[in-house]
């Protein structure tokens, strides 16, 4: 999985869990968001059932168009019997999920380590 060449994300395997990092610190460009959606779709097809952590540590801005791609990701992962976690959100990005109540759709952890532990217990 780590050999796949993506343009908008990089992935790493941590104890059998795929951790996704964004390459853009401001996820807002419309063409890049479409590419991001396509890459997340590819990612979910690569492991069954997918166990994914989306690590936001590098993300300063995340538009609602980008959030829509995450919602699609969450649905696809769930359909395949997998699970998604989000981690390392800076306070403003965390507020974004709170204001929209999307923190009830996504499980959010303060750290990647906590998210890995949570997924390994499942």
């Amino acid at each position: 999985m780590g050999h796949k060449h993506y343009q908008c994300i990089r992935t790493q395997d941590v104890d059998g869990v795929t951790v996704v990092h964004f390459l853009d610190d401001k996820v807002m460009d419309p063409a890049r968001i479409e590419q991001l959606g396509s890459e997340l779709n590819t990612l979910t097809d690569e492991s069954l059932p997918p166990k994914l952590i989306v690590n936001f540590s590098d993300v300063k801005f995340f538009s609602s168009a980008a959030i829509n791609k995450l919602i699609v990701l969450e649905k696809r992962v769930k359909e395949k019997g997998g699970q998604t976690r989000l981690s390392n959100l800076r306070p403003e990005v965390r507020d974004l999920f709170g204001f929209t109540h999307l923190d009830s759709l996504f499980r959010i952890h303060d750290s990647q380590e906590d998210a890995v532990l949570d997924l390994k217990q499942k």
């Binding site: 401001k26 807002m28 300063k60 801005f61 538009s63 609602s64 800076r90 306070p91 403003e92 990005v93 974004l96």
Partner: peptide, 13 residues
């Protein structure tokens, strides 16, 4: 950082 994010979000939307 917080105010900049807020301006960015509102302008974007």
């Amino acid at each position: 950082q917080a105010a900049t994010f807020a301006v960015h979000m509102a302008m974007e939307e």
